[in-house]
């Protein structure tokens, strides 16, 4: 990691914060309308413990939801990738399911399993994020060139061997591409539930309480914390991608 790759995003962030500060100052917006970056440290200091506890809740529920989405998405993708019939049967159902805005499902789930905060939140995070994974895996598998299969099959390799040695690794770049989308989606799912669910937990609930008290600095502090967690998870996925599918990256230039 050289200085340049670290300095450029840092400078960009500082410029962005300065611009935000300037905007609030120039318009003379009071704190109950719009918070400025200089209000945030105070908010973090005041609610630091809550941020740690709630942030952790949001994080682990998102990760569990995402892991379930990966598991289910992989399975569904495999079924649809290997069987034409299953693909034809499941695709319209999946597209329809995905077209339903999950925000409308949130109140239903919240009422259906009222009080089961963890379960509800994980369920929504899962529901919102498995679709891209399933689609990418199924496309990756169904577009496998027949020659790959023939080379291994002519040697007497089993279907499982072909899957592990060729189909799975070949699908990894598409899978990680989808996972990057799914990470962000899972976060949206978690927070939707945390905000809507009464007596909720997590950063979403903290945001909601900030809203109730018209505490704009707190609300913005939550947004920044969410962005931070999002960046963290995203780059964990990027690191995993480098390890497992780094071969797919073309050398620069």
């Amino acid at each position: 990691m050289n200085v340049r790759s670290f300095a450029i995003p840092l400078i960009a962030t500082v410029i962005f914060l300065l611009f935000w500060e300037l905007l609030v100052w120039a318009n003379g917006w009071p704190n109950y309308l719009m918070a400025s970056p200089s209000d945030l440290p105070a908010a973090y200091e005041r609610y630091w413990n809550l941020f740690l506890v709630m942030g952790w809740q949001t994080l682990w529920r998102t990760v569990v939801g995402l892991l379930l989405a990966v598991l289910f998405g992989l399975l569904l993708g495999m079924v649809m990738g290997f069987s034409r019939t299953m693909r034809d049967a499941l695709y319209p159902l999946l597209v329809g399911f995905n077209a339903i805005p999950k925000a409308t499902v949130v109140p239903i789930v919240a009422l259906l399993f009222v009080g089961a905060h963890d379960f509800n939140t994980i369920l929504i995070a899962f529901m919102i994020s498995f679709f891209p994974i399933a689609v990418s895996v199924s496309i990756g598998l169904s577009t496998l060139e027949p020659e790959y299969r023939d080379i291994l099959r002519s040697l007497g390799a089993s279907k499982m061997t072909i899957f592990w040695k060729i189909a799975l690794p070949k699908t990894l770049p598409e899978f990680f591409g989808a996972l990057k989308v799914a990470v962000t989606l899972a976060f949206i799912g978690t927070n939707l539930m945390e905000i809507v669910s009464p007596h909720g937990r997590g950063l979403g609930a903290l945001f909601d309480s900030g809203k109730t008290n018209a505490d704009y600095p707190l609300m913005f502090a939550v947004l920044i914390a969410l962005a931070f967690l999002g960046i963290l998870l995203y780059y964990i996925v990027v690191a995993l991608e480098k390890i497992f599918a780094g071969w797919a990256e073309r050398p620069a230039g």
């Binding site: 060139e145 020659e147 040695k165 990894l172």
Partner: peptide
């Protein structure tokens, strides 16, 4: 049925991108 006593090469070399050339050759 398929027998391991056959070797095949196609117009498309279908090498596995995630393996080195050596490990590609060792696949069979």
């Amino acid at each position: 049925g398929p027998r391991s006593t056959v070797g095949m090469a196609f117009q498309n070399p279908v090498l596995l991108e995630w393996r080195s050339i050596l490990r590609n050759v060792m696949l069979p």
